[in-house]
């Protein structure tokens, strides 16, 4: 399976990254090389193997739903590049 510049365009759009022509060219070559390398996994038969998403035998971690005061909320919001009336500012959406 070959990886083309069209594939780079497709994933760049999905990940909302705009790329220069040079980046597109480099990433096409490099990602194709990496994808070719990872294809070695296909040598293994994994038909009856369960996937591991998480390494520890932990599921459903519960705690009481208690509200806590966060004293630094204001500071957190202020770390945005554009603040409008104490809220995150964004370009016009509609």
């Amino acid at each position: 399976m070959s990886f083309t510049e069209k594939d780079v365009d497709y994933v760049a759009n999905l990940s909302r990254i705009s790329l220069s022509d040079e980046e597109k060219k480099n990433f096409t070559v490099q990602l194709e090389q990496i994808l070719k390398y990872v294809e070695k996994l296909n040598r293994l038969n994994t038909d009856n193997i369960e996937p591991t998403a998480h390494i520890l035998p932990v599921s459903n971690v519960f705690r009481d739903d208690v509200a806590k005061i966060c004293p630094t909320t204001r500071f957190a919001v202020e770390q945005s590049a554009l603040l409008v009336d104490g809220l995150f500012g964004v370009p016009r959406v509609i």
């Binding site: 994933v11 990940s15 990254i17 790329l19 980046e23 490099q30 990602l31 994808l35």
Partner: peptide, 19 residues
């Protein structure tokens, strides 16, 4: 923002991961 802000390796891994 992402284009200007991320370096080459980070972009490469985001693209690979998205793929």
């Amino acid at each position: 923002t992402k284009s200007d802000g991320f370096g080459q390796e980070v972009k490469r891994r985001i693209l690979l991961g998205t793929y």
